[in-house]
Nucleic acid binder design. Structure first.
Length: 710
DNA sequence: CATAGCCGCCTTTTT
DNA sequence: GGCGGCTATG
């Protein structure tokens, strides 16, 4: 690397970048240039003569991995370093060492809903009812065990009370079901890899030599299984570099163990520790608020955020009447920013729960503000996408009964419940999989000739698809989509199906991109990787659109202007965190993460009333607001500082029809009294939807309706 | 066997 | 308020 590049770094950044051999811990506060340090480090390692393929960098999301790859290459580092999430890495390892790990390389990756189905089955198989042993709860418990590298056998041995013994039975059965279907859930990817490294020193040594330099970002959010994997991977050379910030640990509920980062120096006693405390991102006012807030956490090492930027604007705190006004207020403010020439992609709205995006979206649509919702799984959870992927899964993993059940009669081809039940009974009686049973449909005596014929046609179609498995992924998807009849079934439909068609097209585009870019492209790899994808990965940072996301998804990102909504008691901190001090502290860290995403503008808000599960409830503002170190006078303003309904954008058009708000009581000449359900603000063509006391609901053009307020 | 409509369930955050 | 599963009906 040219020496000039290092000149851009601070002394401590340079120290971290140029530390080559031996364990290194980088404790990096928000906005301290951590990402930059990691990418420079990759370049510096290569510069020092390390072969790219001896480097393995672990990121928290796929998106972070993609970005890091691009940045490293832009810095002049030759491509070839392995950069991915822990889960992606484990998929590759398990496929490569399937035999040693005791799995089949063709495994399906089971996502949350797949897991739920298997768990439901497991609970039922154990003769328990799903009310007392809710699959979700059981899944949570099993996941916690897996994250702590405890398998079903060893848990069974240590289970000593009624609940544990029951859970052990469920765990065992759940594992059996997954094994029968050749499926691995998210946690299995880590667990099986941890066991592989523990039990097979030959594999461990081979991998340790392959990945001579291991870099792990967001180390504060690793769980025990990930820790074990990392420890074993560096067991031969100790070249581990971990970066993170204990104050930004927000995944405890998912098994993340903050002790990993706190105990790093115990695990690697000769570790060099570099602290990056200067913040180059946010203005001083924003950092003061963040600093003041996080200081309320008791189980934490004292740490200062050192601002390098000027004071900047005050942090804005606003109270609104309800969530609709709050959303409208945010929209209004963003319009102002846009009018002042600010870029929309530099604005983001954060919230505690996904459901809160709705109100904001509605306001943005009305205000014609382009936006994108960055959400957990949305795209790959759509029915049509899952259907197509299920076909592909059956092609590479015929044991995947979950996938098979999904497609066997989708689109409808006359294979109903009775037919399937009989085929299944035949499979059980003969100790074969359901798919195998279908291939022998002619032998299933319990089935009428018509049923046998339908199954045979289905199997024939699948077998024909199989002939193309070795080809590029996108064409296979297209073939399956067309020839399975899925496409046709959607073409007949209405608007909804039209959207579905477009989604599948989008899937094919993404697959084509995969075909072009993947390291080792294959249908199997595609399916295993796609299961690990989330919508955060498809978040387009270059689009001129406001980003809407949860506080969790905001991790690692930064924006000029940040809006955090719903600072209310029970929401942030979330009510489910009340009874546990550690969880309360995590809620505080969550807000801390959100605040420190902002470069220059930070707008916090709460609403006096919020609709929860369809009910409008009175709220109390979040205790966190008082912990920001902002003068009380600015915290709880009676009237909004910069927004009032009269001062709307459309007021500028010159026309001034009356405006209404949801819930408002009005009277109409003919229909009598009623309540406003919706007000669609379109200037002089505004529409108001009123539910009248007579029971009927009417949409009325405001300028003609002559409604009067009550 | 397919479809529509209804009921009852859950609802924090996500790789 | 949304979704999955169940039932009743064609």
């Amino acid at each position: 690397m040219q020496h000039a590049l290092y000149d851009q770094l601070t002394a401590s950044q340079r120290e971290a970048v140029l530390h080559i051999e031996g364990p290194l811990l980088v404790l990096a506060g928000p906005g301290s240039g951590k990402t930059r340090v990691i990418t420079y480090r990759i370049a510096a390692l290569i510069d020092a003569g390390v072969r790219p393929d001896n480097i393995c960098a672990i990121t928290f999301t796929n998106k972070a991995a993609t970005e890091m790859r691009q940045r490293a290459v832009a810095l002049g580092a030759s491509a070839g370093a392995h950069i991915s999430t822990f889960h992606s890495l484990c998929v590759r390892i398990l496929r490569r060492y399937a035999e040693q790990a005791g799995v089949r390389a063709s495994f399906s990756v089971y996502d949350e809903s797949d897991q739920a189905r298997c768990m439901k089955q497991a609970v039922k198989d154990c003769g328990l009812d799903t009310t007392n042993f809710s699959p979700a709860r059981m899944l949570e418990a099993v996941s916690a065990l897996k994250n702590n590298v405890i398998d079903a056998q060893s848990f069974t041995q240590q289970a000593d009370d009624f609940f544990s013994r029951t859970l052990a039975r469920i765990y065992l059965r759940y594992e059996q079901i997954l094994a029968e279907r050749n499926g691995l859930d998210f946690d299995d990817l880590l667990l099986k890899t941890a066991f592989l490294l523990r039990d097979r020193s030959d594999v461990r040594i081979e991998l340790a030599n392959r990945f001579r330099f291991l870099l792990i970002d967001e180390y504060q959010d690793t769980n025990h299984a990930q820790y074990r994997i990392a420890r074993d991977l560096v067991s031969e050379h100790n070249n581990i570099c971990a970066t993170g910030d204990p104050d930004q640990s927000i995944y405890r509920w998912r098994g993340a163990d903050i002790r990993n980062i706190l105990a790093f120096e115990k695990d690697w006693p000769d570790a060099v520790v570099v602290k990056l405390e200067e913040n180059f991102r946010s203005t001083a006012r924003i950092l003061e608020a963040a600093d003041s807030l996080i200081a309320f956490n008791q189980s934490r090492k004292q740490k200062r955020l050192l601002p390098t930027r000027p004071a900047g604007k005050d942090v804005d705190v606003t109270v609104f009447e309800d969530e609709a006004e709050e959303a409208h207020g945010v929209a209004h403010r963003i319009k102002e920013l846009a009018d002042a020439g600010q870029s929309l992609r530099e604005a983001a709205v954060f919230y505690r729960v996904n459901a809160m995006s709705r109100a904001v979206e509605e306001a943005f649509i009305r205000s014609k503000i382009p936006y994108q919702v960055v959400r957990g799984v949305e795209f790959y959870n759509r029915k049509e996408i899952r259907d197509v992927l299920a076909y592909l899964k059956v092609l590479v993993n015929p044991r995947d009964e979950l996938a098979l059940m999904r497609i066997i009669n989708t689109p409808a081809r006359g294979i109903g419940k009775t037919t399937i039940d009989r085929a299944r009974a035949y499979a059980a009686a003969n100790g074969i999989t359901l798919y195998e049973a279908c291939t022998r449909a002619g032998n299933i005596d319990a089935l009428p000739k018509a049923g046998q014929a339908k199954l045979t046609v289905f199997v024939k179609m699948i077998e024909q698809f199989k002939a193309h498995v070795g080809e590029k992924v996108a064409p296979v998807i297209e073939r399956v989509f067309v020839e399975s009849g899925l496409e046709k079934s959607l073409e007949l439909g209405g608007l909804r199906d039209q959207a579905a068609l477009e989604n599948v097209e989008e899937l094919m585009n993404a697959a084509a991109q995969y075909d072009a870019e993947a390291e080792e492209p294959s249908l199997l790899d595609y399916l295993q990787q796609v299961a690990l994808f989330s919508d955060v990965d498809s978040y387009d940072t270059s689009a001129e659109r406001v980003a809407l996301m949860t506080l969790h998804a905001a991790k690692g990102l930064e924006f000029d202007n940040v809006f955090i909504i719903g600072l209310e008691d029970g929401l942030l901190p979330h009510e489910r965190s009340y009874d546990d001090r550690d969880q309360m502290e995590e809620e505080r860290r969550l807000l801390f993460v959100g605040i420190t995403r902002a470069r220059t503008g930070l707008n916090l808000s709460w609403a006096r009333y919020r609709t929860v599960r369809g009910q409008m409830l009175r709220t109390i503002h979040s205790q966190f607001l008082e912990e920001l170190g902002i003068e009380p006078a600015r915290l709880d303003t009676e009237q909004q500082a910069w927004y009032s309904p009269d001062d709307d954008d459309n007021a500028r058009t010159g026309a001034h029809p009356p405006k209404f708000v949801t819930g408002q009581k009005v009277r109409h000449e003919c229909f009598g009294p009623g309540k406003v359900e919706e007000f669609i603000d379109m200037g002089e063509n505004s529409v108001v939807v009123v539910k009248f006391n007579t029971g009927q609901t009417k949409s009325l053009l405001v300028k003609y309706a002559d409604l009067s307020e009550i």
